[in-house]
Amino acid sequence: MHTVHEVSGTSWLTLTHTNYGKWAVTTKVKLRARRLWNAIDKGTDNEEDDMSALEAILAAMPAQYREPLGAKNNAKEEWEAIAAMRVGSDRVKKATAQLLKQEYATLKFKDGESVEDFSLRLQSLISKLRSHGVTINEEQAVSKYLYSVPATAMTDSGKLLLIEEEWAVPMKMSGKPLPVVVAMASVAARLL
């Protein structure tokens, strides 16, 4: 005989569109701690364990999933339905991550784009990659930025023009407006 710990008084991580892996691990650990995981893993004839496991899973569900999942016959069916539902979204997430990686690999300045606008676009792309499980470290981000800088932002000796005052000389010589670039340290900080 074992003791079933109270489920309803516990805070449960709520399943979202992006956290299935974390949700599944956290929920499994909490169910194991309450000696309820066997009701899901192997199924059980013990109605008290099965209902406690069902209650725990529903406590971790967004409201729109509670009714259809609550109609399942047992906790094992409920868990399997959630896993099946999330497999499709995991595939979409992986496909999106691949597209974002390709976009990152081919990212270049657009005609007439300011360095600051490019920096913001790069920062946004890095954030999207992170939300899809792809990590771009500081060295990679700065390297991508530096390799993408247009020739107009470089001196003849290959040095990057970092501050507005450095842009003033070539701007006066060419007579064309050039974008303002912030110091490289602040660019790196914004990218990460």
Score class of each variant (00 low, 15 high):
S11E: 13
S11N: 14
W12N: 00
T14H: 01
T14S: 05
T14N: 02
T16N: 03
T16M: 02
T16F: 02
T18Q: 08
Y20M: 05
W23I: 02
A24P: 03
A24C: 10
T27C: 12
K30D: 03
L31S: 03
R32E: 14
R32A: 07
R32G: 05
A33W: 04
R35Q: 13
L36P: 01
I40D: 03
D41A: 12
E47Q: 15
D49R: 10
D50F: 08
A53K: 02
A53W: 04
L58K: 03
A59N: 14
P62W: 06
A63L: 10
A63C: 05
A63T: 08
Q64A: 13
Y65A: 10
E67C: 07
P68C: 14
L69D: 05
G70K: 03
G70S: 02
G70Q: 02
N73W: 08
N74H: 08
A75Y: 00
K76H: 10
W79L: 01
W79G: 00
W79V: 00
E80R: 06
A81F: 07
M85F: 13
V87A: 14
D90R: 11
K93I: 04
K93A: 07
K94M: 12
A95Y: 11
T96G: 03
T96H: 09
A97M: 09
Q98Y: 12
Q98K: 15
